[in-house]
Amino acid sequence: MLTYLIFAVAVLGEVAATVSLKVSAGFTRPVPTVIVVVGYLIAFTALAKVLERGMPIGLAYAVWSAFGIAAIAGIGAVFFGERLTPTMVVGLALVICGVITIELGSAP
């Protein structure tokens, strides 16, 4: 259970850092810039801990990426007015299906 909590921290750190990239205005705004650096530091440290605890790297990266992609797409649409077309939604669904397939394939 602790591994999944650490994994959630990794995903949240990555999402916070990526969103902050958008609002940092090319690293000209100090607070979002600090959030970028701290967020990625947290994300990669937590991901390293998850891998150290035995989660397979392919599975960890697939799930981490999929959650990040879906969250960033949703945040972009809701908070930044970015387009999220039906084709993009299908693409996100395919990414999620791919991660589920990887998860099922990694089961003993």
Results as ranks from 00 to 15, higher is better:
residue 16 A to T: 07
residue 12 L to G: 05
residue 11 V to A: 09
residue 2 L to S: 00
residue 108 P to E: 03
residue 49 K to S: 03
residue 22 K to Y: 12
residue 93 A to N: 02
residue 48 A to S: 11
residue 43 A to R: 02
residue 64 W to F: 15
residue 72 I to P: 14
residue 25 A to Y: 07
residue 51 L to P: 02
residue 19 V to W: 11
residue 90 V to S: 01
residue 44 F to C: 01
residue 34 V to D: 00
residue 52 E to V: 06
residue 8 A to G: 01
residue 55 M to D: 01
residue 22 K to E: 10
residue 86 P to C: 05
residue 100 I to F: 13
residue 74 G to I: 13
residue 46 A to P: 03
residue 68 G to S: 13
residue 93 A to Y: 08
residue 104 L to R: 15
residue 33 T to H: 04
residue 80 F to T: 09
residue 62 A to Q: 05
residue 70 A to N: 10
residue 25 A to G: 00
residue 20 S to I: 04
residue 35 I to W: 05
residue 81 G to V: 09
residue 98 G to S: 08
residue 108 P to V: 02
residue 95 V to C: 09
residue 57 I to A: 14
residue 79 F to C: 11
residue 18 T to Q: 07
residue 60 A to R: 08
residue 83 R to T: 14
residue 77 A to P: 08
residue 32 P to G: 12
residue 23 V to F: 04
residue 25 A to Q: 12
residue 20 S to E: 02
residue 16 A to M: 11
residue 11 V to R: 00
residue 99 V to N: 01
residue 107 A to T: 03
residue 20 S to G: 03
residue 39 G to D: 01
residue 26 G to D: 05
residue 4 Y to R: 00
residue 17 A to W: 11
residue 26 G to L: 09
residue 67 F to V: 15
residue 18 T to A: 14
residue 8 A to C: 03
residue 62 A to C: 09
residue 22 K to F: 10
residue 17 A to S: 14
residue 65 S to Y: 08
residue 83 R to Q: 14
residue 22 K to G: 06
residue 80 F to M: 07
residue 13 G to Y: 02
residue 96 I to R: 02
residue 107 A to H: 12
residue 25 A to E: 13
residue 76 G to M: 11
residue 49 K to C: 09
residue 50 V to E: 03
residue 68 G to Y: 08
residue 102 I to S: 05
residue 31 V to F: 13
residue 29 R to P: 11
residue 1 M to R: 07
residue 77 A to V: 10
residue 16 A to C: 09
residue 92 L to H: 12
